[in-house]
Simulated scan of single mutants.
Amino acid sequence: MKRFFLSLGLAVPVLALAAVGAFAWWANHPLRLNNSPLEVVIKPNSGVASVGRQIQRGGVGMDPRLFMLLVRLTGHGPDLKAGGYEFETGATPLSVIGKLARGEVTHYVVTVIEGWEFRKMRAAVDASPALRHDTRDMSDAELMKAIGAAEAAPEGLFFPDTYLFARGSSDVELYKHAYRAMQRRLNEAWNARAPDLPYKTPYEALVMASIVEKETGQATERPMIAAVFVNRLRKNMMLQTDPTVIYGLGERFDGDLRKRDLQADTPYNTYTRTGLPPTPIALPGLASLAAATTPAPSDALYFVARGDGSSHFSNSLPEHNRAVDKYQRGK
């Protein structure tokens, strides 16, 4: 037994040294790349674990767990920067992390988030130090004219995504790219739409998609949320959706939606007016565009939040009132 523990005591350091050696070899060994050169986009505000996953999904053959370990050992956790990076054959884990830490980007990025209002997109674009800000002093209508858009109101007309650009690029080009992306995505959704929807134009579908985007608690519920609003439109019922009221209040909204707000008539108050609001209320993503144009087959006319992020859907007002009592009033 004594000899066993002595052998074990000698083996543990040897194994540890072997593991350290293997890790050091891996850190300096060329990685497998799906292509060469290979461009990988790292989104802004990504944590170390997220960067590791983005690197792997981008085509770099590196285990995100080993990436995280190496980042911690090198102390570069706080240094990893967003942007578009180019990697070529011969890139090692250490060289990849070094490039990310030094910010050796080939392209810069601006990320536009699903559900943002256009004003938030403008703030994100204006905050990018790598862009040339040709639109900063323009009104929204002037910006739309500058990108060649037919519409004067920009809300909802820019596709939320991560956009790459070279340093010194004009923000006009970024807006053009995002606008054209939304036109393309909207047309695709419109061409694949379900029959007999209560929309006259793709723009009306876009308005609905923006409402679905703001009303959805769980992603899987988007088609059902859309079904409720489509069914209400068909019956000429008011949509009665809070996000449109909030949008209509604009800067007057202080985070607390009151009864008087629901009763104050604006073009966006769907408690006082039937039909869709005049414009979208946010930038909808692909899933909301799909839900608005292919809603779930359902007769539901109401929904209420359960308190866990999901919703209860009802076909009748009495059923809805019972659900409100249960989930909102605690009865």
Rank of each mutant, 00 (worst) to 15 (best):
S50K: 11
V48L: 09
L70W: 14
G61Y: 07
S50H: 06
L80C: 03
M68N: 13
V51G: 04
M62E: 10
G58T: 10
L70K: 06
L69G: 12
V60I: 15
D79W: 02
V60D: 10
L69S: 13
A49C: 02
L69M: 13
I55L: 15
R65W: 14
G59P: 05
G52C: 13
G59S: 11
G52F: 09
F67Q: 07
L80N: 02
R72A: 13
L73S: 06
Q56N: 13
H76N: 14
S50A: 15
R72Y: 12
L73P: 01
P64G: 08
V48Q: 11
V48E: 11
V48G: 10
L70I: 10
S50F: 04
G75C: 00
S50Y: 02
G58M: 08
I55P: 01
V48A: 12
R72S: 11
V48R: 06
G52S: 13
P64H: 08
G58L: 07
P78S: 13
G52E: 09
P78N: 07
R57F: 05
G61Q: 12
P64Y: 10
G61I: 09
L70Q: 11
F67G: 10
M68K: 12
G75H: 00
I55S: 08
M68A: 15
R53L: 10
G59R: 05
R53K: 13
P78D: 09
L66H: 03
L69R: 05
L69T: 14
P64K: 05
M62I: 15
G75Q: 00
D63G: 05
D79H: 05
V71G: 02
M62K: 00
G77C: 01
I55W: 07
G59C: 09
R72I: 04
L80D: 01
G77Q: 02
T74G: 00
G77M: 02
L73K: 03
R65E: 14
R53F: 12
L73M: 14
D63K: 02
V60A: 13
R57E: 15
L70N: 11
L66G: 03
H76I: 01
V60L: 12
L73V: 14
R65C: 01
L80F: 01
V60Q: 08
G52V: 12
L66Q: 07
I55C: 09
R53Q: 15
L66C: 03
G77T: 02
Q54M: 15
T74R: 04
L80Y: 01
L70C: 06
G61T: 08
T74F: 01
R72E: 13
Q54W: 05
G58Y: 06
M68P: 01
L66K: 03
G58R: 04
R53S: 12
P78W: 02
L73R: 04
R72H: 10
G77D: 11
V51R: 02
G75R: 01
R72N: 09
R53G: 03
G59N: 09
R72C: 00
M62G: 01
T74Y: 01
L80Q: 01
